[in-house]
Design a protein around this nucleic acid. Structure first.
Lengths: 145, 145
DNA sequence: GCTTGACCTCAAGTCGGCTTGAAGTGGCAG
DNA sequence: CTGCCACTTCAAGCCGACTTGAGGTCAAGC
């Protein structure tokens, strides 16, 4: 079983050793042994780090990510919670698509002021067609989306 | 021309007044006048705030967002830069889709350890099929994705 | 004309996510 | 045996994005 030195993990993932230590501290990854002082990781950590990176992309906090992927890398959460997370990601994908389309539109549309371009306004407003949820919508709440 | 009081903007968007003031400070939005002390905004600010919210979703910093959407809400950047941003978003969408699929898979797959489930591993590894870029890949760099 | 309450300013505080610096350790090459 | 150098710990620092608190202002309603 070949183990990876923290330095190698850093090199292969592009994540600094300091960040890896921080992740371990936070319970996101774990080293299986030491070689001298040096942490050694199972190769699986690479997969796990990809998962973490994706989670971060999706705007989840490290704490949420830790909760999502339990000890063996498999989510511990009940099915419905997982599906909720997936739904949240779906909404975000829609938002991102709208932004991407908006940027591309703007790159190509010659209108003098985009605020007056109907296609522009339509793009921005798209994906926002549900009522603005008010009230304490703290952490994880979608703002007026 | 009906103007919006900051309180109304806050109510309609779900963004706290303090955050709106912060955004104004940062040059992301601007108030057009005061009623007494109170900031008044053009209705367009709502659209602009949607744009900002989307940009945040996409992981752009406020500074990047400010650069993206110039004074009138229209991006100031050269076409190719805009397309680059759009490409970055596209990659992120792919990552998010992979995460979403992974979550859904895990919610439904009965394998005891997902680390050993080939579909799981495939899903995680998907969207990661280009070489890990090393070196100072600070801010905006995609990690091993 | 006084109170009220939603706003104002400005400085300081908070939180997440790391990074940096100082001081130490230990395997390995020469 | 001696460096060396990549790692270690721990505390402190930093940045972005806000929030909070103290103290102030002012249009509107009674």
């Amino acid at each position: 079983m070949k183990l990876l030195d923290i330095g190698e993990v850093a090199a292969r993932t592009g994540i600094k050793a300091s960040a890896l230590r921080y992740y371990e501290e936070a319970g996101l990854i774990s080293s299986v042994s030491r070689h001298g002082l040096r942490r050694q990781f199972l190769p699986d950590v690479l997969l796990r780090l990809r998962l973490i990176s994706m989670g971060k992309s999706a705007g989840f906090s490290l704490t949420e990510i830790a909760a999502m992927f339990g000890s063996d890398g498999a989510p511990d959460l009940p099915r419905d919670v997982l599906h909720q997370k997936a739904d949240r990601i779906d909404r975000q994908i829609r938002e991102l698509s709208a932004l991407r389309d908006t940027l591309r539109h703007v790159a190509d549309c010659p209108a003098p002021s985009h605020m007056e371009c109907p296609s522009f306004r339509r793009l921005v407003t798209l994906s926002g067609r549900h009522a603005a949820r008010r009230e304490k919508t703290r952490r994880g709440g979608r703002e007026f989306g």
